[in-house]
C-alpha cells in the first residue's frame, strides 16, 4: 500500500520538487505495471504514466488526505488510459460470449504449452480479460468496481476472471 507521511504531502502540495520526485519514485513501478496491462504497449504505457502523474501534480489540491493516495492516483491513471483507448478506438467492446470463446481457444493452442512464463500465457488472453485479471488480482478491485469501469455487469467481471484463471491454472498444471 503506497502512502506518504504528512510532511511529504504538505511539501508536495506547496510544489516542492523533491517531495514530488519522492512520491513519483514510489508510484512509478505500480503505475507503469498497471498502465502496461491497460494499453498493452511499453512506450504507450510510459506516456500514460507521464500524463497521469502530471494530472496528479496539477490536481493535488483535490486530493483528500483521509482517502487512500494510491486509490486516487490509480483512478486518475485508469481513467486516463481508458479515455486514450476510447479516443483511439482501442477500447474494444466485445461481447462476453466472444471473449469467453477466445479464452477457451487459448487452451486449445499447442504452442501455449511451450510458454515458459505465466506472464506470456496471460498476455495471450483477450485484452479485456487481461485487464480484469490484473485489476482483480494485483489491484484488489472488487467485481463491482471493475464492472463500473468497463460499463458492464458484475457477472461479466466474475465470468471473465473465472474463465481466465481456469486457463492459467490449466497451463500451470500441464507444464509444471
Amino acid at each position: 500500500m503506497i502512502s506518504f507521511d504528512d510532511l511529504i504531502m504538505a511539501k508536495a502540495r506547496k510544489g516542492d520538487s523533491n517531495a514530488w520526485k519522492h512520491i513519483y519514485q514510489s508510484c512509478e513501478k505500480p503505475m507503469y505495471s498497471l498502465a502496461l496491462r491497460m494499453v498493452g504497449d511499453k512506450a504507450l504505457a510510459e506516456d500514460m504514466v507521464q500524463d497521469a502523474f502530471i494530472k496528479v501534480m496539477d490536481k493535488i489540491g483535490q486530493y483528500r488526505s483521509d482517502s487512500s493516495f494510491w486509490w486516487w492516483v490509480r483512478t486518475i491513471l485508469v481513467n486516463h488510459c481508458i479515455s486514450f483507448l476510447r479516443k483511439n478506438n482501442r477500447w474494444v467492446h466485445q461481447e462476453e460470449a466472444e471473449i469467453e470463446s477466445r479464452i477457451q481457444e487459448l487452451g486449445e493452442q499447442p504452442e501455449i504449452m511451450h510458454e515458459k512464463q505465466l506472464i506470456k500465457v496471460l498476455e495471450r488472453l483477450p485484452e479485456q480479460a487481461q485487464r480484469v485479471v490484473y485489476l482483480y488480482v494485483v489491484e484488489g478491485m472488487t467485481h463491482k468496481e471493475i464492472a463500473e469501469l468497463f460499463g458492464k455487469t458484475q457477472s461479466f467481471s466474475k465470468t471473465l476472471l473465472s474463465r481466465s484463471l481456469s486457463q492459467l491454472r490449466s497451463w500451470i498444471n500441464t507444464t509444471h
Partner: peptide, 24 residues
C-alpha cells in the same frame, strides 16, 4: 489460487525503461 496470484503479481510488476520523471 494463492500460488497463481503470487506468480501473476510478481511477473507483472515491471519498471519502465525510460526516465519518465525527467520528461515530467
Amino acid at each position: 489460487h494463492k500460488a497463481l496470484f503470487e506468480t501473476i503479481t510478481e511477473q507483472t510488476q515491471l519498471a519502465p525503461e525510460g526516465d519518465i520523471w525527467q520528461r515530467i
